[in-house]
Simulated scan of single mutants.
Amino acid sequence: MEIIDLFKQLLSFPSITPDDAGSLEFIKEYLEDYEALWFNKEGVKNLILYKKFGEGEHLCFAGHVDVVPPGEGWNSDPFEPIEKDGYIYARGAQDMKSGVAAFVQAAKETKEFNGTLSLLLTSDEEGDAKWGTRYALQELKRMGMIPDYAIVAEPTCEKEFGDAIKIGRRGSVNGVIEKIGKQGHAAYPEKAINPIHKVAQVLPHMAGVDLDEGDEFFAPSKFVITDIRAGMEVTNVTPGKLKMMFNVRNNTKTTMQDIERFVHKYFDGMNYSLQLSQSAKPFITDPDSKIVKLIDKAIQKVTGITPKHSTAGGTSDARFLAEYGVKTIEFGVKNDTIHAPNERVHKDEVVNLYRVFLEVIESF
């Protein structure tokens, strides 16, 4: 099977999170000479395929077969890939069955490798991600099989294929502040404690403020207020409580403790509570590491482009790999139609992505 045929086959599986729709069993059978491990829990399937070629280091390709629901506005069946003007249209075309097809085909064609080559595939990346890659890595650690390097084939390119890789990601900290006041009549403000008035005094010092200066790889960690609500939607009652929600996409210079201190600095003396949760931790892979240099050279060889090193965007399963000390990068096709109706990718990008991955394996 050629790379584009494999890609179209994967697109035909209606694998909406967390249902793999049979795609993982298909990949397992396609790579029949690889050892298979299944780590399934709570309706999520995780498949590890590995082959020990030699005694060298362990390189892992990671990705997800699940996709978001198609939604409305499609010009064709989202799970029947069609080709038009060189583009292939289907849900998951960019995010991220193109990446999965590319590394599956590269793994199938690999005959020699100085070490262990593996694939980590999950059906729960677009969902809660609780029982997906995170759970699979826990099991791999228990078995002593954590890889040395990983390439996550998420779509990373911006304007043209090959122009960007991700060598790190920002973390994400969510916060909820509840400011307690004293409800009262709007005509008698002196008898009430209006939490809106109290919070309004500190907002100019908090909203949109950079918590650090960033660095050459990361933008500053910014305090972004996402919701404020209080009161009963009437004009003659001042509220007794205000709730404010915020998010900080933090780099490696700002921790959850730093954010807690920042909030307390401005809410000190107020009657308030704070809840913080971290859904992702920031990470950075040394740009001089082996895996970054290898992917750079492979992209240059295939496309003639020198990719920029980025940490922009949301989160991905790369964060879980990085927590185990795996030197992790991300590289895939362009990401201009991900999660949108009529998601598409140019077939040349898929072919070149496969060629890049094959080059990395051969030069590893």
Rank of each mutant, 00 (worst) to 15 (best):
G92H: 12
V68S: 15
V176R: 04
P195C: 12
G304F: 05
G214E: 06
M244K: 10
F331S: 06
A21M: 12
T255E: 07
K293Y: 09
V152L: 09
H264W: 08
I167K: 11
F246D: 04
E112S: 13
T110I: 01
W38I: 00
L353D: 03
T337V: 12
K52M: 07
P155I: 04
I295L: 13
A107Y: 01
A187V: 13
V224S: 14
M232D: 07
F331Q: 04
P69S: 00
L10T: 03
D286H: 05
Y149M: 04
V68A: 15
E57C: 01
A101P: 07
L242S: 12
G144P: 13
T303Y: 03
L59A: 04
E178S: 15
E126Y: 11
D286N: 14
A136E: 02
L47T: 01
D212G: 06
G86T: 07
R91S: 12
Y89W: 09
Q300W: 13
V234P: 02
W74C: 02
T110M: 00
P282R: 02
V100W: 02
I228K: 07
M256Y: 03
E72F: 14
E72Y: 08
T306P: 09
T226N: 09
N342T: 06
S12Y: 11
G181K: 01
Y87E: 03
P189W: 05
V104D: 00
I151L: 10
E32H: 14
E109Y: 10
I146Q: 08
G314L: 11
N46I: 07
E216G: 15
E80G: 05
H205E: 15
E42F: 09
P195R: 08
G314Y: 10
A192P: 03
Q278Y: 07
L117A: 05
Q278G: 06
Q257F: 15
Y30I: 09
G304A: 08
V152F: 02
R261C: 13
E154N: 06
E178C: 11
R229W: 13
E190Q: 11
D227N: 15
G22F: 11
L117V: 01
K253H: 07
H264Y: 10
T252H: 06
Q105W: 08
E160L: 09
V44Y: 01
Q300A: 13
E323T: 08
N114K: 14
L242Y: 08
W38K: 00
Y266R: 06
K241G: 06
M270P: 08
P147L: 07
R170Q: 14
E109K: 12
L276M: 13
I284L: 09
Q201L: 11
S172P: 05
Y135M: 09
E112C: 02
A153F: 10
V199S: 09
Y272I: 03
S289W: 11
I4P: 10
P341N: 01
G22E: 04
Q201I: 14
L6F: 10
D163P: 15
M256N: 04
Y266A: 12
S221L: 09
Y34L: 07
K290V: 09
T226Q: 09
K347T: 05
D85S: 08
R169P: 02
E160M: 07
M206D: 13
R170K: 15
D148Y: 01
R169D: 03
N174K: 15
V234K: 05
P220M: 11
P81V: 13
E42S: 12
C60M: 13
